[in-house]
Design a protein around this nucleic acid. Sequence first.
DNA 1: GCCAACGTTGGC
DNA 2: GCCAACGTTGGC
Length: 158
Amino acid sequence: MTPRRRYWLMKSEPDTFSIDDLARVGIEPWNGVRNFQARNFMRQMQVDDGVLFYHSNTDVPGIAGIARVASTAYPDETQFDPNSDYYDPRSTRENPRWDLVDVAFERKLERVIPLEEIKRHADALGEDFALIRRGNRLSVLPVSAAQWKFLLNLERSE
DNA sequence: GCCAACGTTGGC
DNA sequence: GCCAACGTTGGC
């Protein structure tokens, strides 16, 4: 049995890289993730998995668009670059610490689905939804098929 | 292996 | 800009 398509949510600060930036470049290596849990989720990703593109650290944080996973995980080049903000002196070519996946633009949502609105549906989404779990800071997190469907239904509601 | 110190994330 | 939450580091 082939594994089913899975779904994820990936955060980005729009000042750094927004859904419009992704629309412009089409495909982007998701570099700079320096959290082991987030890295491990990226290692589980398969090509064509669905991605909710989330804008964090902005006036209205929320889901701004849809993307798809365009590669399996491979080493993040920025970890080897002393001039990069993401440089990690502990990484070596033989033993890279950080991986990334390529992410491809699919579409912008008709409206940003604000975090505040998502929180109001906590009951439907479930207490285990990592995005709205208290104090959560994970930048890459899994989304169930039911949560994916529910969140996208919000796009055309209200 | 514990845990204090430190750094970062990200909502507000 | 503030600060709660939390991950990582490193001394012991």
